[in-house]
Design a protein around this nucleic acid. Structure first.
Lengths: 119, 119
DNA sequence: CATAATACATACTTTGGGGTAAGTACTTGT
DNA sequence: ACAAGTACTTACCCCAAAGTATGTATTATG
């Protein structure tokens, strides 16, 4: 989970951004290549780890759990593991994650309108 | 404006993300450290280049125009330059940019709720 | 005994977004 | 003559996010 140098300018700017701008605050949590896609899939229903993997063929396993862990740490998704073998792990949106649905939907709406040249 | 290697996996994945996920489509356009902040400021009214600079003290001039150019190329902001000297350049949201306001507001709402531990 | 399936972990490498620093053109004010 | 203000541009560097590749534990099944 890649250690972070606390002194770098980029980290200070990140902090600045988070304090100044609610939009940055959100981006910090759902940004990156894969998090939006994962959230989009989970917004359509709970999914097992392997289901997500199959649903997003282009993602590597490293990226998948890395982001799932971060989303879990950020309280956006909840991990549920049944103590069986082979493992059975389900991911679903938390309350905070569900709270993001209006954002997700607003984005989707804009995206489709923009794609169709509506602006 | 940093050349991009067209063959890299990361670029292919970006393309994949854009095609698969409307959320990624939006993030591609408003992502990064500074774009959200710039948009947030412009959402409160048109601004000159120097006004933006003063409004966001932590940003460097390189980052500021770089992102303004990208936002312009992405049709989110409109640049208007009066042919006077010293230069007088104004930036404002385009129709597509204005279309993003619901997204911005949904994000802001979520951010403030999350900050106050509402989830 | 070996392979498959599931859900990860971890060492190593790449790359592109962001940062630093300096320069440009043109005019007004002192 | 020189600094100050405005809106940029350009060359160079760094590092954190993303990618590659391989390994782990456990049990069922042929």
């Amino acid at each position: 989970m890649t250690a972070i140098k606390e002194t770098s300018t980029i980290q200070e700017n990140k902090r600045y951004a988070l304090e100044q701008c609610p939009v940055s605050y959100v981006m910090e949590r759902i940004g990156g290549y894969w998090k939006p896609i994962i959230l989009y899939h989970l917004s359509k229903g709970d999914k097992r780890y392997s289901e997500l993997k199959r649903a997003i063929p282009a993602i590597t396993e490293k990226m998948l759990i890395q982001h799932l862990k971060q989303l879990e740490a950020d309280n956006l998704v909840i991990r549920e593991a049944k103590p069986v073998v082979p493992p059975f792990v389900t991911y679903r949106l938390s309350n905070a994650g569900i709270g993001l649905l209006p954002v997700i939907e607003a984005m989707a709406q804009w995206a489709f309108q923009d794609m169709e040249g509506k602006f």
